[in-house]
C-alpha cells in the first residue's frame, strides 16, 4: 500500500513538473515569429486565413487552452506547416517511431548481457591483466565521443570493407536478417556506449560487494567461491544495476540523435532536427514534449524499481 502511495506521489510530482515545463516551452515556442512560406504556388492569403482560423493570432492562454483541448478530444497536436505541409504531426511522429525503437531495442539486447558479463568478469579478476584491459577499454569508449567511433565504424565496415549497407533497409520486415544487417552499424555504435557504462558500473558495484564482510561469512560457512558469488554477491550488486538498466530501456525510445543522424535512420531524431531546421513549430512542440516526458519517466521508473527490488528502500519510503 505504501508502495502504491509512493508511486502515486512520484507520478503526481512528475506530471506537475512536466506541465510546468510544457507551459514554459509552449509560451516560448508560440512567441516565435511564424515563418512565411516562400515556395512557389502557395497562396499566402489562404495560409494567413488558415492561421487565423487555427487561432494563431489569439492571446497565448486561449491558444494553450485550444491546444490542450484538441489533444484530449481528438488527439490532435496540430498540423505541419513547413516540413510536411498539411499533415497531422501526430501521425508522422507515430510513423517515425518504429525505426528509432527497433535500432535501440537491438542495441539494448546486444549491450545488456555483454555489459554485465564484462563487468562481472572484470570484478572477479580485479587488478589482474584482464581487468586492466577491460578498464582501459571502458575508459576509452566512455571518453571518446560516440560520433567519432560511429564515423570510424561507418568508414571501416560500410565503406572500406563494404560489409554493411550505408542505409537502413526500411522495406524489410522488422525481424528479418536484411533489416538486422542494415542496422547493425548503428546498433554497434549505440551499444558501445551502453556496454562501457554498464561494465564500469557493474564492476564498481560488484567489487564493493565482494569485499564486504558477509562474503567472508559466506565463504567461512563453506560455500565455494562460485556459489558465494552467484548467490550473495551478484544479487546484492544487482540492486543498483537493475534500475539503471530499466532507465536505459526507457531511454531507448528517445534514441540517439547523433547516431540516427550519422546513419540516416528515418526516425524521431531526424524528424526533430528537420523540424528545427524547417522551423515547423508544431513538430517541435510535440517532440519537445516527447523527449521531456521520456526523460522524466525514466528517472521515475529508476526510483520506483529501486523500491521494488530492494525492500530496505521500500521500507524507507514509508
Amino acid at each position: 500500500m505504501y508502495m502504491l502511495k509512493y508511486i502515486l506521489k512520484r507520478l503526481g510530482l512528475m506530471l506537475l513538473t512536466f506541465s510546468v515545463i510544457m507551459v514554459i516551452c509552449f509560451v516560448l515556442i508560440k512567441k516565435l515569429p511564424l515563418p512565411v512560406p516562400k515556395s512557389f504556388g502557395q497562396d499566402l492569403d489562404l495560409i494567413f486565413q488558415r492561421r487565423e482560423q487555427l487561432g494563431y493570432n489569439k492571446p497565448i492562454l486561449v491558444q494553450m487552452w485550444r491546444y490542450v483541448k484538441a489533444i484530449f478530444q481528438y488527439r490532435y497536436f496540430g498540423t505541419s506547416e513547413t516540413l510536411k505541409p498539411g499533415k497531422d504531426v501526430w501521425e508522422v511522429f507515430v510513423e517515425k517511431l518504429p525505426a528509432t525503437m527497433i535500432v535501440n531495442i537491438y542495441a539494448m539486447i546486444l549491450s545488456v548481457p555483454l555489459g554485465l558479463l564484462f563487468g562481472i568478469y572484470a570484478a572477479l579478476r580485479k587488478n589482474k591483466w584482464q581487468d586492466h584491459i577491460i578498464s582501459t577499454g571502458v575508459m576509452i569508449i566512455v571518453s571518446v565521443p560516440s560520433y567519432v567511433y560511429a564515423v570510424i565504424i561507418q568508414f571501416l565496415l560500410c565503406y572500406k570493407l563494404g560489409w554493411l549497407p550505408f542505409q537502413m533497409n526500411l522495406k524489410a520486415g522488422f525481424l528479418t536478417w536484411e533489416m538486422f544487417k542494415s542496422i547493425l552499424a548503428p546498433v554497434l555504435c549505440l551499444s558501445f556506449g551502453t556496454i562501457a557504462g554498464l561494465t564500469r558500473y557493474t564492476r564498481a558495484e560488484l567489487t564493493e560487494v565482494l569485499t564486504s564482510d558477509f562474503m567472508l561469512l559466506a565463504r567461512t560457512k563453506g560455500l565455494t567461491k562460485r556459489q558465494a558469488t552467484t548467490r550473495h554477491a551478484l544479487r546484492n550488486a544487482m540492486v543498483p544495476i537493475l534500475p539503471m538498466i530499466v532507465g536505459e530501456f526507457i531511454g531507448i525510445i528517445s534514441g540517439s540523435l547523433i547516431i540516427e543522424n550519422i546513419f540516416t535512420i528515418p526516425g524521431v531524431g531526424g524528424l526533430y532536427l528537420d523540424s528545427i531546421n524547417a522551423l515547423d513549430y508544431n513538430f517541435f512542440l510535440l517532440l519537445t514534449g516527447f523527449y521531456t516526458f521520456v526523460g522524466l519517466l525514466s528517472n521515475i521508473l529508476i526510483d520506483i524499481s529501486y523500491g521494488f527490488i530492494d525492500p530496505r528502500i521500500r521500507m524507507g519510503a514509508r
Binding site: T17, F18, V20, I21, I24, C25, L28, I29, K31, L32, L257, Y272, I276, L279, F284, T288, Y291, T292, G295, L296
Partner: peptide, 19 residues
C-alpha cells in the same frame, strides 16, 4: 532545479537559438 533539469538540453539550445 527539478523543472530546469527536466528540460532536455537540446530544447534549451534550440529555443535560445531561435529567440
Amino acid at each position: 532545479v527539478e523543472i530546469l533539469s527536466g528540460v532536455p538540453f537540446m530544447v534549451v539550445v534550440v529555443l535560445f537559438k531561435l529567440h
